[in-house]
Design a protein around this nucleic acid. Structure first.
Lengths: 336, 336
DNA sequence: AGATCACTTTACAGCGCTGTACATTGTCTG
DNA sequence: CAGACAATGTACAGCGCTGTAAAGTGATCT
């Protein structure tokens, strides 16, 4: 059975195609009886508009792309879920793009792959350099997420990583901890994100009169929780003395928990831990995980708003929006 | 700057549009020098094809939709990740659709929302009845995922839930457990999935000569891990005696762990637990979670293959494919 | 009655691409 | 060297829809 087209409906209802189109699109000035007649034809034939054709005619796709490193990372999963919901409420659909932190894939996101496919892109880059970013999105509206060193020309939504790290460490200091480790550096990955977080970490310690110890900045081999586990074990092996950990994300924090448990070190009594992302993981660990909590809903909302403006012709300079964060206090670093 | 079109390239290279099209699409019979000339024009103008227009002309969209209840559920996140990867390798892109287990949203997936937008849909329904499913996807190729009671006309990929539940319980029985609880029923949600799992659970017990006790089938209020936690606590409150749990998913198992820990019940010594999905959660809990492991990669691969055939004209009866499962043994129910 | 105006509906071009049918060129065969 | 055939390139219709301009329809006013 061939698809029913607009023209089939028009013939059936004895009207022009455009009138059918007007009915389908809820155009105001259509007489009620005419509308009813057309609607009847639509229902009888089971007509449904071809979105691709509509797109070609209007130039709008009604879709936005969300490009992230991994869709099965809890943080990104939650962001995707929020964004899909927000976008849907505003009449947009979301294509989810997985870059796997691959530079080529990230480039592709902004280039040909999106050509004419989406009206805009919300993108969390990890590998692309600032300049490449600036150069690549000629005419495609883009909003960046995360703490990359975003080009000034591009909209960007983030939390204040310095302040968030500061707050996380403060929380630990308030618990009386003085030997706070930073678990977050990954070999060969000196991103802006980490630099900022490290800065906040240092500011908090210095502000509290605690001497900085470079030994306390732990390095992992990769991004998996096992890499964090290994990093913590290795720190313990070399006799590093610490009573708290601020972790780059909840997965790393979970890895740290595992390592500490294996060594019989009590959390939070011996070592308190603050994770990062406030993802669903925080509820599954034992003890549950205190975590730096970016306002994910706000991130998604603001990102969509900025993109929406760009898609509707806004052409100003890049706007850099900071959304709130908090600390979700759970058992691994309880309230003071 | 207006977009560069095919015709602009054609004019620049002094050839017909079709020749440019042939070059862009890698058509074989184009002379090398002609190809070079056209390519040069493409590069100079920075031409990129408009995918929407291509779609309208070819009738193919090159996209498939993946519709699932929640994209931030770890199981679905992993499935989405696999599928995106597989589809990409075969030249398809994936739109991820979140139904939030809403009947209307599920219907929409098969109806107007995807009209002309995607070439096919891979769909994990939870609310839709068999007949609705059968009726709604007239001409849209669809492959179903999960253990719904799929219409015979529709392709369907799943694991053998009876056998998987059987194996999960066997694993617990091999550990010497005899009072095995089933944590999985949710109020007002008597799905086929659960019926099958419950059947496998019963078969395993009966096969081992263990008396069935209806009390051991635990009921939760909702789908959240806290609901599982509450269900287990309530079972403990009423003095239920059990030494093992087979859980409907890993989140529920995590909830059970929390409840047991709070009551000072040792896992796995007092109560062994087997989760379901073998999701990333299994590594974050303490102890780590033994879990029934559907072969997610195989699920995604087979689903895509079936869909691919349908999209290329296959019109036979519904095929119902069973993919392997295993038990990922971890600490919550160690090997015997 | 004719003019005016606001509201409805129509006709048709065109969004950018590819498929089809056909024209052209070059190569090979007997 | 004619004829057959493959390889290569061209012209143009058409995918299904919407935007635009123009035409039609009453109602209201002079």
């Amino acid at each position: 059975m061939a698809r029913v087209r607009l023209i089939d409906v028009a013939e059936r209802a004895q009207v022009s195609m455009k009138t059918v189109s007007n009915v389908v699109n809820g155009y105001a000035h259509v007489q009620p009886d005419m509308r009813a007649r057309v609607q009847a034809a639509i229902d009888e034939l089971g007509y449904r508009p071809n979105l691709t054709a509509r797109r070609l005619a209007t130039g709008r796709t009604g879709m936005i792309a969300l490009a992230m490193p991994e869709i099965d990372h809890p943080y990104f999963g939650e962001m995707a879920s929020h964004l899909a919901e927000i976008a849907l409420a505003r009449g947009y659909r979301v294509i989810i793009e997985q870059t796997l932190s691959d530079a080529a894939a990230e480039k592709a996101v902004l280039q040909d792959r999106e050509a004419g496919l989406v009206d805009g892109v919300i993108f969390q880059p990890t590998r692309m350099a600032t300049l490449d970013l600036a150069r690549l999105h000629d005419d495609l509206p883009v909003v960046l997420l995360g703490e990359i060193d975003a080009p000034v020309t591009t909209d960007h939504v983030m939390i204040d990583n310095v302040a968030a790290a500061f707050d996380g460490v403060r929380h630990l200091l308030n618990l009386g901890r003085r030997r706070v480790a930073f678990l977050g550096l990954v070999d060969g990955d000196i991103t802006m994100t980490n630099r900022r977080r490290l800065l906040g970490y240092q500011e908090a310690l210095v502000g509290a009169g605690v001497r900085l110890d470079p030994e306390l900045v732990l390095q992992a081999r990769g991004f998996d929780s096992h890499d964090a586990e290994a990093a913590v074990e290795s720190a313990l092996d070399r006799g590093l003395d610490f009573d708290a950990i601020l972790s780059r994300d909840d997965r790393f924090a979970a890895g740290a928990l595992t390592a500490l448990r294996r060594r019989g070190i009590a959390v939070p009594d011996d070592v308190a831990i603050v994770g990062w992302d406030d993802s669903a993981i925080t509820g599954y660990t034992s003890p549950t995980l205190t975590s730096v909590a970016p306002d994910k809903r706000a991130l998604a909302t603001r990102a969509f708003e900025l993109l929406h403006e760009r898609m509707h012709g806004h052409h100003g300079a890049g706007r850099h929006i900071v959304v709130p964060h908090g600390i979700s206090v759970r058992a691994s670093a309880p309230g003071a």
